[in-house]
Design a protein around this nucleic acid. Structure first.
Length: 204
DNA sequence: AAAATGATCAAG
DNA sequence: TTGATCATTTTA
């Protein structure tokens, strides 16, 4: 599986977000490598996007990484108890990102189940497996991604995204982004992308 | 429908 | 220093 290059990320979030669907998120974390297919994303367009953390050029300790070069992980804590994973995209000083909202587990299920439920694979119910990575907070819990991993280079050797080994045989649907009601008119932009019919999409 | 739960940040 | 906010999930 070929790792996506820095140039892949050096485009607008509106271009990268749908292009990440079907790609594979890989986290080389002992004791086991975890791999999962990206099935849902959201684009955050930066200074002009009222839904974005960097709206209006807001530069704080948290958002600083968004102003850096593309291809880095932006992981922030939300609601006091969950984390969300983004890929920083576009050039320096253009603070855009793509939120990874849902994954379909491919490899390392044992680790994901343990991270999320403290159970072994065999003890997990079908319902729990279906619920493993079907949301931005869930997938970070499953991969054990926290602020410790914030800022990791997605072109490095720990956490990265790879091309799919299979042909792209899916349809892409769009919708307004989830839970950004504060974003005024931007709340209705169709900047959420997901794979049609995939059971791991957070909401159809 | 509502609680859980704490970092973050703008305002004072 | 403080208080409102929040790109969520779970349980009821």
């Amino acid at each position: 599986m070929k790792k996506l290059s820095r140039s892949f990320y050096n485009r607008t979030s509106l271009e990268v977000a749908p292009d990440l669907l079907g790609k594979y998120l890989v986290y080389d974390a002992p004791p086991q490598r975890m791999v999962a297919r990206i099935v849902e994303t959201e684009a955050y367009m930066g200074v002009t996007d009222k839904g974005a953390h960097s709206y209006g050029g807001r530069r704080t300790p948290r958002t600083d990484i968004l102003f850096g070069p593309p291809g880095y992980a932006y992981i922030y804590q939300i609601y006091g108890m969950y984390y969300c994973l983004n890929a920083v995209v576009n050039a320096r000083e253009i603070p855009q990102a793509v939120l990874i909202r849902a994954l379909e587990p491919v490899q390392g299920l044992e680790s994901m189940v343990y991270n999320r439920y403290g159970l072994t694979n065999d003890a997990a119910t079908k319902k729990q497996i279906a619920n493993l990575t079907s949301g931005p907070g869930k997938l970070c819990r499953a991969f054990n991604l926290t602020k410790e991993q914030n800022g990791l280079d997605l072109c490095g050797k720990t956490l990265w995204i790879a091309q799919s080994p299979n042909p792209q045989d899916f349809r892409i649907l769009t919708s307004p982004r989830i839970n950004i009601d504060y974003a005024m008119e931007a709340a209705q932009y169709p900047w959420r992308y997901y794979i049609e019919g995939n059971p791991y999409v957070s909401r159809p």
